[in-house]
């Protein structure tokens, strides 16, 4: 009941400054729109760990020195970096998905949903960018530091575990945070394959009404807030992990 009154109040207040949120008082449109916010947040929360895990995996493959490991990953990284994510998503959802259906013996057995394809395409795309950042970080670890570690008797694994990865992670952190902000923005491509995130939900509303401006303000604010939070957390981690004596 209270919720109803609050949304009524919001609608009448905003209509006074010329914005139209009348659909909030209706049935399925307001439901879709509210769910849109939740879906976007859920996508972001799921995609951040997925992209980081695969990013580490890709980086490990790229720096392994084994051609059979590094070249397929390198190929994927180049492909995903140099083609539009929207096209990748359409291709995966419309073409790869059909192949999968044929493989498992019919569409009815195919468990892969549009949501899965957004997570897969956006997650792996950002993972590729993470991997490049981490690889650059590993290559930036001074050779003298590794020599010194070897000198005091560290094994190859110990060098990786205690010297290279911690230093590389710190060096690549700003780039990773930047990638995560891109990740948040990329979730919007989901609307092209009917994942009910916030832009999809807004399209559903504004095609039946004429209130693009009102919906745009809400979307822009929403993304500004999410990305501010992501950037703040990134900054906080960066400060926590800062190596004394480096930077300012």
């Amino acid at each position: 009941m209270q919720d109803m009154n609050l949304s009524d109040l919001f609608v009448s207040l905003t209509s006074r400054i010329g914005l139209n949120y009348e659909f909030l008082a209706t049935g399925y449109e307001s439901q879709i729109w509210r769910d849109g916010f939740v879906t976007t947040l859920y996508l972001v929360a799921l995609l951040i760990p997925v992209s980081l895990i695969f990013g580490l995996l890709f980086a490990a493959c790229l720096t392994s020195g084994k051609l059979w490991l590094s070249s397929p990953v390198r190929g994927f990284v180049e492909l995903t970096r140099n083609t539009p994510t929207l096209v990748q998503l359409m291709f995966s959802f419309l073409v790869l998905n059909t192949f999968v259906s044929n493989l498992v013996g019919g569409a009815q057995n195919n468990p892969l949903t549009p949501f899965f394809w957004v997570v897969a395409v956006v997650g792996l795309h950002i993972a590729a960018l993470h991997a490049e950042a981490i690889r650059a970080g590993i290559e930036a670890v001074p050779a003298s530091t590794i020599e010194a570690a070897r000198g005091i008797g560290f094994s190859q694994f110990q060098i990786l575990r205690y010297v290279e990865v911690p230093l590389a992670f710190r060096a690549s952190l700003p780039a990773i945070v930047n990638n995560l902000i891109n990740l948040v923005k990329l979730t919007t491509v989901g609307n092209a394959i009917a994942v009910s995130e916030i832009t999809y939900a807004s399209i559903m509303v504004w095609t039946q009404r004429d209130n693009v401006v009102s919906l745009m303000i809400a979307i822009l604010l929403f993304f500004s807030i999410i990305n501010l939070i992501v950037a703040r957390i990134g900054l906080w981690v960066e400060r926590k992990l800062a190596v004394p004596g480096y930077g300012i």
């Binding site: 902000i181 948040v184 919007t188 693009v212 745009m216 822009l220 993304f223 500004s224 990305n227 501010l228």
Partner: peptide, 19 residues
Amino acid sequence: VQVFRNAPHLVLIFATTYI
């Protein structure tokens, strides 16, 4: 700079097209 660096490109294209 803050707002438009954080805004999805797709949303900005929608905004300019329809507004």
